[in-house]
Design a protein around this nucleic acid. Structure first.
Lengths: 337, 337
DNA sequence: TTGAAAGCGCTAACAG
DNA sequence: CTGTTAGCGCTTTCAA
């Protein structure tokens, strides 16, 4: 049934060594004649080398594994597209796992991927498995972290400049004459993404002469409905706020829902900027000003750099890539003064 | 460095056969004593069987491959979540590919997956590779088709009842007093999903005493911006239409954009129902009435049934699953009469 | 320029 | 109840 290298060898009247060599492009040391002959038989028989046998021998699988924390956020879909494209073009297959932001599950998944001997692993880390990440890096397993940094760990990573993202929002608000800003964010819990957005927000506020208080940054549980409740709560207490910076696209939808329930007008009463550009942002009511992250690019570069590390046999220093976000201005952030 | 079954055997003073048996749960024929001993050593050495060696021997990989046609549509992200959950829980890894609706690429991907010896393949088919699908089914390779049917091919599939989906929309429009309906759809090109939505739309129209004309169903190119242009065009010619059924979630966003440009009021002037529920639907202006498809469920069942087929050594008839869509009523479809 | 042979790590007859 | 042996399909020294 299945055609093996032996079948080809027999049929061509050569040894499997020769077939193997030709298969792997070792043309240099082969007669044009035998080469053509073998190649033809391979075609005729539609012979495909068995990757497991090959892998067993070479100790490599040509598979890259990725552990994402949230498959349903369109930001990650886009990243995944970038990773998939690059892997496919480079001859790698992609194994996808979903940690769902659960660090135990993440550990299991990373473990499983290693056991499977995938050639490299990309992960959007929950950051609660530092020992594991460290161990992997130490044993020189090709490993790349995406979107979030691991503090005190020198590892390949690709992130977006979240401080800059927050600054873009703050400065835009100020340009539009807003002064009472508030930032909504999920519990940072050691996650660099959230921390940096908070940090950037505060820094940009200070630099522009606005005072930062306890009430400038509101942290909410990352669970459905919590952001909506929080914004309603906040508004009842501080009805004079005039600009909200939402640091996550799902959160933004909830905030909008809250505003509707409150009867608050956007941007008349309060301006709104959301993190992450999405297909729907421009169709919201009002069209949403957003901070766009180069998600596809992030995926592409992550895959590219990981593959480079896999290919480079010699040890090399981890590569750190920081991508720049940009501002997409629409109506939700108000008009020019 | 890497610890193999030989190391364990040596260390435990038994043969690798014994280790292998214990590893695979063949406890029945083993002394409690040796079993404990071997198990302990396995733990101590942190021994992990090499899946490639195992796969080479057993001719199976414990990998399932999936070929999607559009990673960035949230509908598919949700399906993927269902597939991933089920695979993980059943001990399979998931290999994800993106055909991007390109049938040549699809053929290459399916081919690659087979070559990789994945244990089964799920695909949202472009439907332009019938010979390939047929060949795969004939050679009894575990294969399951999702979302779209392949005509004249008896293969495992999981789809949603698109006729019913369209009917839900039409009947809802009629209840709300609308009579001049139009359906927007991408070029069907043999894709059952689109065909059935058109068919269901026409059928429900007729059954409710509405006449179906050439202008009742508008087909547009599946390229960015085409739907927006089409709706604007249509409206200028037939300004008396009072209900639009959009058969795709991206298309819906464009239609809304078109309406805005036209200054058409929804639902005042025209009612709108969109296919596929999304996170953003309820936040649109106005909140969108949608046809919801059980995407996660679809992924779950697809994976489950594929695994059943993989496990069942005996030939069995293909299983056809048809899931039911449901209507989520919001403001875009108008008020009760 | 080509081939023989050893083996990657594991499982499964078949013996004992 | 356990071990010996023979591969799974491929790559890779080492020899010719």
């Amino acid at each position: 049934m299945k055609v093996t290298i032996d079948d080809v060898a027999k049929m061509a009247g050569v040894s499997k060594t020769t077939v193997s060599r030709i298969l792997n492009g070792n043309y240099s040391q082969a007669t044009e004649e035998t080469k053509e002959k073998v190649l033809k038989i391979i075609r005729d028989l539609n012979y495909r080398p068995n990757p497991m046998a090959r892998g067993l021998k070479q100790m490599r699988t040509n598979i890259i594994g990725i552990v994402l924390s949230n498959l349903s956020n369109p930001f990650w879909s886009r990243v995944l597209e970038g990773v998939e494209d690059t892997c496919r073009q480079s001859g790698y297959s992609l194994m996808v796992c979903n940690s769902n932001e659960d660090s135990e599950r993440e550990a299991g998944l990373i473990d499983g991927l290693q056991m499977r001997q995938v050639d490299g692993i990309i992960v959007n880390p929950t950051v609660n498995n530092k020992e594991l990440y460290t161990e992997i890096v130490q044993k020189k397993y090709p490993f790349l972290v995406i979107n979030r940094r691991i503090s005190d760990l020198d590892v390949d990573d690709v992130v977006v400049d979240n401080i800059q993202g927050a600054r873009l929002a703050v400065e835009h608000f100020i340009e539009r004459g807003r002064r009472k800003l508030v930032c909504f964010v999920y519990e940072p819990e050691g996650i660099s993404t959230w921390q940096e957005r908070i940090q950037g927000f505060k820094k940009a506020m200070s630099e522009n002469g606005l005072v930062v208080t306890e009430q400038s940054v509101i942290q909410v549980d990352n669970a459905s409905g919590r952001a909506k409740a929080a914004i309603i709560d906040y508004f009842r207490q501080k009805p004079d706020v005039d600009a909200v910076f939402s640091t996550n696209n799902m959160m933004t939808l909830e905030i909008l829902e809250g505003f509707k329930e409150l009867g608050v007008e956007v941007p008349g009463q309060v301006a709104l900027i959301g993190y992450d550009e999405t297909v729907w942002a421009k169709h919201l009511n009002p069209p949403l000003t957003t901070i766009e992250q180069p998600a596809y690019e992030m995926g592409r570069i992550a895959a590219k750099n990981l593959i480079q590390r896999i290919d480079s046999k010699t040890a090399r220093k981890p590569k750190h890539v920081v991508l720049k976000p940009s501002l997409i201005v629409r109506q939700s952030s108000g008009d020019h003064q």
